[in-house]
Design a protein around this nucleic acid. Structure first.
Lengths: 245, 245
DNA sequence: CGGCAAATTGACTCCACTCAAAGGAGGTGG
DNA sequence: CCACCTCCTTTGAGTGGAGTCAATTTGCCG
């Protein structure tokens, strides 16, 4: 966090136009259900950021809400600082996922959002997006869809689960999200620290270590530092599922 | 739950038109930022339900998603059943609050929603709402605003809190919501059972009893069965606040 | 009045936390 | 290139807050 403490400045400084039609995320991101013509229209409101270094923030709690951001590459976490000065990790964001929906109602960002890897995002003026959504029903639908998904996921994460269930779920979630982004679902990198995972899952850092070690000695995963390999997907899913039915 | 197990039927059977302009919830509900003319337009897509008895469901997990519902009177809870057959209470809804946002993305209700008191709702075809939202920017804004608020609240409830903090928060939340609906913020009814509260807060039923008793003997609240009086609002807020800042 | 579910209270248990310490990994500067 | 520092992670030992189990009380409704 130290390297970029100097300033809260409005982001997306470069206004680089971006071709969504060329983007590998096409079918994961907001314009996924737009046709070629509509996509071109959409591109006019998208600003690609310069590369963002690990530890660099794209939103700060208290910032005026103007834009949402679509992750283009890398990984972000969002977090708040509670009254005890403790960091609370709210979530992790992978390419194609949209950041900032929690800021709409107060017109102010409540969360800090920081890159965990070298990353880039597409900035979208929320006013422009909503205006365009009035012209493009598909885009409006997609916005509601993504927000609804976000609500569902938060509801699901509110469940009362054991440490093992929580961690298994996170691994399954990441695995699935990597898969739909064309990466391996079996072997991937945990961009976030144990501490971040712990905070996000409301567990202690030590518990993350211990449970990962337990999963490993049970032959379910192989884990070394940030590298994780899922060896027994079925068993992991079994541990994860206290699903709703 | 027993009395109405007979059928999953599409709801809002009566198609009673409703005058939002006359509704006491006017400034809490979806049409809050519409002008007189727009409100009249909006009324055409609203269907008022007949009275709903305690224990009666308005949505069931698995139901096709067609409508969202605005609580008109009473109180609802939403819940899912997990793999162990345990009920997980996701949230409580008071008049003016909107139910069903978690169902949009899958076009299917994931949660069951049941009345806790004698209640009524306004049914809103989601297609009609979104279509109208394209004509009425204020309505579109309001939809995004309410969904965003919902996301924020879920994020906040994900925090890692003690039993006392959780319960204090729920009491504060209810108190505030009653206040903005014109009811007393100092004295109100818990429509939901201890069991529901426990499930929603991820605590044991016994813990709810114990903590409420502790709050009472500390002079912070007076509680008798379903009636709660907040005696020391400041102390309660103090207990509740491990706020984000 | 009687039967039943909800709520309360008490005793004991356990999972995850805290405290503490020891290994790594990576970065920096001499 | 190595020594050093710092942060992250892992492992161990003991504690505590909330859960579980069990029994009792209360309120509700026929």
């Amino acid at each position: 966090m130290g390297s970029e403490n100097q300033k809260k400045k409005p982001y997306f400084p470069e206004r680089v136009q971006v071709a969504c039609s060329q983007c590998t995320l096409g079918n994961l991101c907001l314009p996924r259900s737009l046709d070629a013509l509509e996509t071109e229209q959409f591109e006019h409101i998208v600003n690609k950021s310069r590369p963002i270094q690990p530890g660099e923030h794209i939103f700060r709690a208290g910032d005026k809400f103007q834009s949402i951001a679509a992750v283009r590459a890398g990984c972000f976490k969002s977090y708040v600082i509670d009254k005890n000065g403790e960091e609370q990790v709210l979530g992790f964001y992978l390419p194609g996922e949209i950041i900032g929906f929690d800021a709409i109602h107060e017109k102010t960002h409540r969360a800090n959002v920081v890159a965990l890897d070298t990353s880039s995002v597409c900035g979208l003026s929320f006013d422009s997006v909503t205006e365009m959504a009035r012209q493009l029903p598909q885009l409006q639908d997609e916005l509601f869809r993504v927000m609804s998904l976000h609500i569902s996921e938060l509801e699901a994460s509110a469940a009362d689960l054991s440490a093992e269930e929580r961690i298994a779920r996170l691994l399954c979630s990441l695995s699935g999200r990597f898969a739909s982004r064309g990466y391996s679902s079996k072997e991937f990198n945990l961009s976030m620290s144990r501490r971040d995972i712990a905070s996000n899952l409301r567990l202690a850092t030590e518990t993350i270590s211990r449970v990962l070690a337990r999963f490993q000695s049970a032959g379910i995963i192989r884990v070394n530092r940030k590298k994780v390999a899922i060896l027994e997907e079925d068993k992991l899913k079994e541990l994860a599922r206290r699903d709703t039915c």
